[in-house]
Design a binder for these strands. Structure first.
Lengths: 292, 292
DNA sequence: TGTCCCCTGTGCAAATTTGAACATCAGTTG
DNA sequence: CAACTGATGTTCAAATTTGCACAGGGGACA
């Protein structure tokens, strides 16, 4: 049963009873309606209508078709309503992915956003692998490092996260404060396990400090922070994290080049949906409160 | 929600996952598929698919569409099966209409036909007004008189019904037998009330006998026979009726020109259906047994 | 890393579908 | 009874859809 449009045409003819009337409703010429009916009947090998001067009356087959097509028409109408509503409203799933380290920042925002949009279900994906927007795995991604440049992605700057080199008082007691950049080689560091990390402060550290001075490595950024807090060495933490742990001592002033930019990334196909737009707007508004 | 074909296209893309694959299944060029999707998305204002190098993956809206369209596809397939089967098999309604007088002849045939086709429901319409085939009121009509010449009707000769001029013995005792055609003016007759009847024997009687000799008129053919049997006068009965009433006396030999032809009439739209064809074949076969 | 393959996407011509005008017919109304 | 209305059906031109050829791009695999 190909050509669903012909079924739709036949449906209207059966419903209304005349070719002309159906043509009006369908917004096509009545000749088109006649041809659709003829084609459909020929393909089915059965007459759907009896033609007479006052119009078309459905045969048994035509009435059967009308019943089925009526249901179809209803379902399609409802579908269109749902889909349009879905595009305009904020409901269904909202899938967000980011680095684990941002979880404590983002989670409260997402909870609040969901509370304001009760029809929404938030799914927050974090994981080792990068979730791919182009396969529909997420609506919004918060990415760090260089501006991602995938072709079908819409990239917006989110906010810049200043980084700080910190250590615990116990570490400072034991090893003292670095006197300057050149003194760093005499200290012990915590860093990311990924050698070719794109994060600028990781690169900076790699340049200034030999590998054997980096004594604690982990793939998980949170574990990195935990290592710093437990006094394993000097490590990078964000401004936000530093505030959470007032005991940490900044061993040298924050440098501009450490700053890790965060990017809001959406797939171009989803970027214009009101759902995504609403979330981005909300997220930016909340982020404004973070900035010091 | 116009353009059901585009929904069908989107359905296949959602089901298969690639434009090219869907195009193969649909038997169209892949460019067509792309254009259908684009048009549909633009009309709905929502992206149905996320495009990436390996194909299309359905968004929430696209998955919703796929669910609805899957059901639709199933229903249409079943519908096509039903309709095609309906055209090929003998089932549903079979509506037959004829003059009341033929009821005793036809009813046994229809009962037998229904018994051989258990899925069939026979509806036998008789009534004063002519049931109109072109409005779908009946599948098959048995008509008498001149060959009907309506444009959209398929007319076949059914069988010729020889007519006989008969009277009861009591009438013959009282008035004697007509000696010939010229003697008819001295007798009393029963005829149809409809003056301009098309039945040839009615016309013949009108020509040979003055109106005042026709003393009993009725619109119902069966009542005409009843009138003859009760001795009201001389009247026309069919061969079949004459056999049912052996007491009736034929007052003059049956003439060829009285013969009332019966016609099988079907609407052109229904004539080729196997249901109608099967009934016509069956009816003719049975009628063959009637002929003497 | 480079090549190959499959998939998407686009400009242009061909084919198909559609629309407009007209013919025709039945039923209705003045 | 004749004109009128509203319906179907057909023919030809216009418009739209479709197909083709080719470009471009991202994975897969050697």
């Amino acid at each position: 049963m190909d050509n669903w449009d012909e079924i739709r045409t036949a449906f209207q003819v059966a419903r209304i009873g005349t070719v002309s009337g159906a043509a009006d409703v369908l917004g096509v010429h009545h000749a088109t309606v006649i041809r659709h009916i003829d084609a459909l009947e020929q393909r089915l090998g059965v007459k759907l209508f009896q033609r007479h001067a006052r119009g078309y009356t459905a045969t048994e087959a035509g009435q059967d078709l009308m019943q089925v097509a009526t249901a179809t028409d209803d379902q399609f109408t409802q579908l269109a309503g749902r889909i349009r509503g879905q595009g305009e409203g904020v409901s269904g799933d909202l899938v967000v992915t980011s680095l684990v380290i941002l979880s404590p920042l983002l989670t409260p925002v997402m909870v609040k956003f969901r509370r304001e949009n009760p029809d929404l279900t938030v799914r927050f994906l974090t994981g080792d692998r990068l979730f791919r927007l182009e396969y529909g795995e997420a609506h919004v991604a918060i990415r760090a490092g260089e501006a991602p440049s995938q072709p079908d992605n819409v990239v917006q700057p989110f906010f810049s996260q200043a980084m700080h080199l910190v250590a615990t008082p116990s570490y400072v007691e034991q090893h003292g404060m670095p006197t300057g950049v050149s003194d760093l080689v005499n200290h012990w560091f915590i860093s990311h396990d990924n050698v070719d990390s794109r994060a600028p402060f990781i690169r900076w550290l790699s340049e200034k400090v030999p590998q054997n001075r980096i004594v604690f490595r982990t793939t998980d950024n949170r574990a990195m922070v935990d290592a710093v807090i437990s006094g394993a060495g000097i490590g990078f933490v964000s401004t936000w994290e530093m505030r959470q742990h007032p005991e940490l001592i900044e061993v040298m002033p924050s440098q501009e080049e450490w700053t890790g930019a965060l990017w809001l990334v959406t797939h171009v196909d989803l970027h214009r949906t009101t759902k995504v737009q609403a979330f981005l707007k909300f997220l930016k508004a909340e982020a404004a409160n973070w900035e010091v």
